[in-house]
């Protein structure tokens, strides 16, 4: 096979692989978990937690929440997602003591676990 044909094949495989990964990811549903049960073994998984907001702050458009149940977990909302979330939930109105349900990817930041929401619908304020 010629170099150019092989290159086209590689581009096709790469695009197909990315499409398959996106389709597979879209079909996943977050698993509900207690904050105190989250551990490093869960890294990279899609989880949903419920808890009380302990702190809520914003910097450079990013939002930082701390959601607590028996333990606490930081929730990081990147600015671009925060803008989309703000269309349905006013992040500025979230205060300490509010109960929220958040789903997202469990990631590691500076050696600690953190939850990163993925959709505009990933954050739900349950009780003000």
């Amino acid at each position: 096979m010629e170099e150019n044909e092989l290159a086209l094949l590689c581009i096709g495989v790469a695009l197909l692989g990315m499409a398959a990964l996106i389709v597979q990811a879209r079909s996943l549903e977050p698993g509900e978990k207690g904050i105190d049960t989250l551990q490093y073994a869960d890294l990279g998984s899609l989880v949903e937690v419920y808890g009380r907001v302990s702190t809520a702050s914003t910097k450079n458009g990013h939002w930082f929440l701390t959601v607590c149940d028996r333990q606490c977990i930081p929730v990081f909302i990147p600015s671009s997602l925060a803008q989309r979330i703000n269309r349905s939930v006013n992040l500025h109105e979230i205060k300490s003591g509010h109960f929220v349900r958040v789903n997202g990817l469990l990631k590691e930041y500076n050696g600690a676990l953190e939850l990163v929401p993925m959709h505009a619908s990933s954050l739900e304020v349950l009780k003000p």
Partner: peptide
């Protein structure tokens, strides 16, 4: 601060 999370997935 750009996240494609909600767009890609």
């Amino acid at each position: 601060g750009i996240s494609l999370d909600g767009i890609l997935l």
